[in-house]
Design a protein around this nucleic acid. Structure first.
Lengths: 243, 243
DNA sequence: CGGTTCGTTGAAGTAACTCAACGGCTGTGG
DNA sequence: CCACAGCCGTTGAGTTACTTCAACGAACCG
């Protein structure tokens, strides 16, 4: 347990709802480990029963489903502060996989202890439910993209959504640039597009001057314009709580 | 409050986790009303702040998002026993709409009272979170359909999924037939297909003998075959709890 | 160096879309 | 009673957005 929850950097950036020192202490008590995993690791494997709940402390990950014939759908991307495997912990088997996109660090919370903690600190139960609902709203948004938007609109929507989330995390530089570790295959699998068409769509948006992409870093020309392309009904990302 | 929770028909069909009489009594206490609404009613309007949480007692509904230019994506369908507006109740504004597909009856639970109830009965908080997670898994499945499957596979997957859910509710007859109130426009909007193509795809599956559809009732020839068409990794729908 | 992964581009094919028209059914109002 | 409008489903024809196939260059690594 290298990093006590008291000193969690995620907490200090104002990301989480203020929780009582009492609650924080309880979380710290059940936190079992702080693990580092390399890019490509499977954090949760579909079909496994997962005895643990994780929070992503550093790095990127993604949640996905596979079809019987091997096609893959990326459901959403996970950023620091996100819970991994809430559903998996509530059901008996995970219905999806979670893979580390970059090197990651995760905090391990034993499932049983989390549930018993709820009995003592009901406020935390609300917060966990909140995080689950937030993550669901990301999937909703992605489904809307894949179901309704054209290829260019989907790419724009994905980038804008990541931009907004990273901005809340303080991971966007002053020039509107941020780390962008996705390969084009990831983007294709998230948006329900072929690899080739994803490439051509990205090229088109780049030629239009919507953004630059070099050395794993994406620089946005103008977030508002891109949001317009994505046809957003301008809804804001809600404020976030806990863990 | 015509129907006390004690006598709830949903409860009697073994659908929900056994909860203590004490918990049940608490739910009954905060239940405010039992409302009947005609088909087409908006149960939740996107953008509204919703002071209430509902449970769908009878009838069908659907949750959807609209794009700026009017395109609609149906996120998932709601059946008796499902919660309406959990996300909406946790955030300050609903990010989606919910519309009654048939005439419906809903139980009204004032939002504030639900949260305070959690403090007294933490077990219920877990159950609500469970229901939220379950609903999310439906969206995951739908996203996988829209992102990965062909039109015929999507239609098959949708029908199989509804069949499985209705079966758990005891709403499937001995001949594998069930009420099917969706118009082709609903199916199209849920699957990210055009109306015309949805029609042609349905016709094709019908010609192949996968199912019959007449007078708002769908009869499945063989659920297993349809599941095969949908390319399911045979995952079972988990057992359900509460409210 | 050769192997691997990732990005790029051209060309040909197809699944799904749009447009358009029509038939059946239901409810409404003269 | 018929006339008419509105909704839903159906079908044909032409178009397009996206897919698949194939090949190649750049970067990275053992």
């Amino acid at each position: 347990m290298q990093v006590p929850c008291y000193e969690c950097e995620l907490r200090s950036c104002g990301l989480f709802k203020r929780i009582t020192p009492d609650e924080l202490g309880s979380i710290n008590e059940i936190k079992r480990e702080h693990l580092a995993l390399p890019a490509g690791s499977e954090i949760i494997r579909a079909g496994d029963e997962s005895p643990e709940l994780y929070t992503l402390y550093a790095g990127w990950a993604f949640r996905f489903k596979m079809l019987a014939d091997g096609r893959r759908q990326i459901l959403n991307f996970l950023l620091p502060g996100d819970l991994c495997g809430l559903q998996a912990a509530m059901f008996d088997a995970a219905l999806y996989g979670i893979e580390a996109l970059t090197d990651v660090e995760i905090c391990v919370l034993p499932r049983r202890k989390v549930w018993t903690l709820f009995d003592q600190k009901p406020g935390l139960a609300f917060d966990v439910a909140w995080l689950g609902a937030h993550s669901k709203s990301l999937v909703d948004e992605n489904l809307t993209s894949v179901g309704c938007r054209t290829a260019a609109e989907r790419v724009a929507a994905l980038i804008v959504m990541l931009y907004k989330r990273l901005k809340l995390l303080g991971m966007v530089a002053a020039d509107s640039s941020f780390e962008f570790p996705l390969t084009q295959q990831h983007i294709a699998d998230a948006l329900g597009l072929s690899l080739v068409h994803t490439n051509k769509t990205l090229a088109k948006l780049r030629r239009l001057g919507m953004f630059k992409l070099a050395k794993g870093r994406l620089t946005l020309a103008n977030p508002r314009v891109l949001a317009r392309v994505a046809l957003y009904f301008d809804e804001e990302v809600p404020q976030r709580p806990l863990i």
